[in-house]
Design a binder for these strands. Structure first.
Lengths: 331, 331
DNA sequence: TTGTAGGCGTTATCAC
DNA sequence: GTGATAACGCCTACAA
């Protein structure tokens, strides 16, 4: 267990009197049937004693693959990303890849961030969340790219079927008898939110809409303003459960009881949905599966030739979970 | 904007008729006063046109630094880690480092995970959350290590002053007149939780304790059992806000009103604390600062000689935030 | 079955 | 000012 600086494969070779290439052969598992069992054992023993670890940089340089994936998300602080991260991370690790994370903190320095990461860590491929890379920039320096919750002709992508999600929410409320439904939309301009607004517009015609940040306190302000300004709103469709939590706060402050005088639907089915009182009716999204699928797409693409095969655009299903926050409108 | 495979510094050199080493000098900024302004400009132009990006692996091999930090956390899904991640990530990026993330998913395959990451990504240093590395293993392969929310003589560390935190919570409840206070502890065996239990034992003497998972539903079960089994408990100190959220669920189910017949104190001050009704009295911890401090410690250590200077153990303050979930016991 | 040699793309030390 | 040249540690034909 001697840990003294670094042992190289040459040290190992010297230690047991063989050549460096033999060491490489044995330790990379490609010595089967080529190196005698005795030498192989000796090599392994020596490597063990020296605590030898192959130098990742050297290997990456030689093979051209760093076995690292870059993941760019707008806000690690959001529970949704935590779950997505876990899915991505697991899938990646299962395939021997590490995940390097970039949190842009909602600033749109996309190209910069992504490129920086690549330059720094030398990722083999990138996962970009939320918006396609700016047209001009080549954010990954030519590395394979997979988009999450965004689409672009040039790259494979995975996203949730958010249109079906908001549609299910709207139909649920319509079925309950609501006639004036407001959309509490995200203030971020990510593709997914645009899709939702468009579908709701098509479905509901003109209807109130407010824009809110993804935290309960900020969202509460937005919802309070909406409720004060718009007459007769009896139901809210929120772009995210955190925003829905804000709606609860605003409703409480305004003396509106949920669901008696205000119905609320969220999106994502985060942990907070169950903690709210009453439990939140929401559109459940499997964030972990999303992350996993994105990584699988990227890994698959890393296997292919650079431009081969048309990029796929995966769409994953979501499902409305009816809980206690929705009911027929009063009176 | 031609992106054709990869352009190397040799391509750039050829393009503008200089030697490769001149290109290196110019682009690494070390050409000041050595390379003529004209050549420098030409080199930069050529690099731009070719979309040249230095090869990270080659640079890492040559310089011995990958500019990547490994971060190992038990559960990215917890909002606390989201905030910590952000702090760590920002500090790292500010210094030109990328952060590679490993989520162990609460399994204690420490050595494996950390080593795997290192092998894969070649991190210059590691940040380990929650528990010191197993004595025998050298999880980072000799790379500098910083512990977060854990301490060990051999490594620098940062942690929250959790003892002061639970003490403040306990004194607050004691001051309110509570006499039978239960501790809803985390079921994880991380150092931070042991510290809290010990302090509460010292302060409160024998008192009820239940162990709960860090999700509301699971925690609710644990709290329900505690409340059913123990007589006269009027207040709960929870190891985390998610657990406190579970306590709300259990209290609701058991018909105990918060704070009228049950006071609850949480830990961390996550977003959920404000969403709960009534808002949760909790011990606020600055997770972002924790992440930042850890990265700074690691970067500083990366600057020094391998064994130089005694490892520091930073302890960051926490503060009780009184909100609506605590009140004098009934009757 | 094993060893030799060349090169991956950089950086950095020297001559020129 | 600029250009050869030698590593960095590993992989992999190819030679022995």
């Amino acid at each position: 267990v001697t840990v003294e600086g670094r042992a190289t494969s040459i040290d190992v070779a010297r230690r047991c009197g063989v050549s460096q290439s033999t060491v490489s052969l044995v330790l990379s598992g490609k010595g089967a049937g080529r190196v005698s069992a005795a030498t192989a054992a000796a090599v392994r023993a020596a490597a063990d004693e020296l605590g030898y670890r192959p130098n990742a940089a050297a290997r990456a340089l030689k093979t051209g693959a760093s076995h690292t994936l870059g993941l760019v998300v707008p806000d690690v602080t959001n529970a949704f990303f935590g779950r997505m991260l876990r899915g991505a991370q697991r899938a990646a690790r299962g395939a021997g890849y590490a995940v390097a994370l970039v949190d842009t903190g909602n600033d749109h320095g996309w190209g910069d961030d992504a490129a920086d990461l690549l330059r720094a860590g030398g990722a083999d491929g990138m996962l970009l969340f939320g918006r396609p890379p700016a047209a001009g920039s080549a954010p990954a320096g030519g590395a394979p790219l997979v988009l999450i919750e965004a689409e672009a002709a040039a790259h494979p992508s995975v996203r949730l079927d958010v249109e079906a999600g908001v549609e299910a929410a709207a139909r649920h409320l319509l079925g309950l008898g609501h006639e004036r439904i407001a959309h509490v939309a995200s203030e971020k301009d990510e593709a997914t939110f645009g899709l939702r607004a468009a579908r709701l517009d098509a479905l509901l015609g003109a209807h109130p809409r407010a824009f809110a940040p993804h935290d309960a306190v900020g969202a509460a302000r937005a919802v309070a303003a909406l409720l004060a300004g718009e007459r007769g709103v009896t139901a809210l469709i929120c772009d995210d459960d955190n925003i829905a939590a804000g709606a609860y706060l605003a409703a409480r402050a305004a003396g509106r009881a949920i669901p008696a005088t205000l119905s609320v639907v969220g999106f994502d089915d985060l942990d907070v949905a169950l903690v709210l009182d009453p439990p939140l009716t929401t559109v459940a999204a499997d964030a972990e599966a999303l992350g996993r699928a994105a990584v699988e797409l990227l890994l698959e693409r890393l296997g292919r030739a650079p431009g081969a095969a048309a990029p796929v655009a995966l769409v994953q299903p979501v499902a409305l979970v009816e809980r206690g926050s929705t009911a027929p409108p009063a009176g």
